[in-house]
């Protein structure tokens, strides 16, 4: 019933297959928290199942995961807690699912954020990716549904993409377990600090806005020297995001 891991990575010396234990719902005493984000209907829940060995129901319709699902796996004696966030197209609106996703990445401070995208619709998916990369710099892009992309004759230059985004990119077909070992290996390397990401920051911002953002960023960094997403907070403040203003006041960012 289960497809066996049929990836070449299984035998690769870098991937320690015996070090992997799928923990299902047992998520106590974890060492790292991993968030799973992405657009609706990109197969996040399938990736979640492949990583945790759980069989959370997956459905081919957008918005299927409305509640946060949690599961775990162990790799090389470290325990990872995996949180499957609701699928969203953006993090800038106030709907319940977008806020849930955003709050978790922002305040939950996951050690790694796995961004699952549909390889067939990369450009549209990048909207969310670029927003997430403003918030966190510990992320990996899981380029899912590669099997469909191949059938659709879409070729993706993974190395260029990875260089442009400044984060590791792992092509995968979670339904067939392809790319999952590589993903696990990458997650562990980001969590342990072996891979340092230098994520892409939104560039094509008009001059006057960029200037305002810089001014604000400097002030924010003076107050909170240790936060990595000062620029994103500046964006939100300029937008007049009440929740972020509140969070600043209550010191939730520290």
């Amino acid at each position: 019933m289960e497809t066996k891991i049929n990836s070449g990575c299984e035998t690769c010396e870098h991937f320690n297959k015996d070090g992997l234990k799928k923990l299902g719902v047992r998520t106590d005493n974890f060492d790292f928290v991993v968030a799973l984000a992405g657009n609706p209907n990109t197969g996040k829940s399938t990736v979640f199942n492949a990583l945790t060995g759980l069989r959370q129901h997956t459905g081919n319709w957008p918005g299927k995961t409305v509640t946060r699902a949690e599961g775990g796996f162990e790799y090389n004696t470290k325990k990872y807690k995996l949180v499957d966030l609701p699928g969203t197209y953006s993090l800038m609106s106030t709907s319940e699912d977008e806020q849930a996703a955003r709050d978790f990445i922002l305040f939950g401070k996951p050690d790694v954020t796995v961004i699952v995208v549909d390889a067939n619709r990369l450009e549209r998916n990048l909207n969310l990716v670029l927003q997430i990369l403003e918030i966190t710099d510990k992320a990996v892009l899981c380029l899912n549904l590669m099997d469909e992309a191949e059938r659709n004759a879409i070729e993706i230059d993974v190395r260029t993409l990875s260089r442009d985004l400044g984060i590791p990119v792992v092509p995968a077909s979670a339904r067939f377990n392809r790319g999952i070992p590589e993903l696990i290996q990458t997650i562990s390397e980001i969590a342990s600090g072996k891979i340092i990401c230098k994520p892409h920051r939104i560039k094509s911002v008009p001059e006057n806005i960029e200037k305002a953002v810089k001014t604000l960023t400097v002030e924010i960094e003076k107050e909170f020297p240790n936060i990595s997403n000062s620029r994103w907070i500046a964006f939100r403040l300029l937008e007049g995001d009440k929740q972020i203003i509140e969070a600043l006041k209550t010191g939730e960012f520290v």
Binding site: T160, L161, L165
Partner: peptide, 27 residues
């Protein structure tokens, strides 16, 4: 403006890394 910037960046990135053969699309 910000939304446009994001889309511009996305288009830029895709231009360099994605190639597709439209005639073969299964869509």
């Amino acid at each position: 403006n910000l939304t446009e910037s994001i889309y511009a960046d996305a288009a830029d990135i895709v231009k360099d890394s994605v190639r597709s053969n439209d005639s073969k699309r299964r869509f």
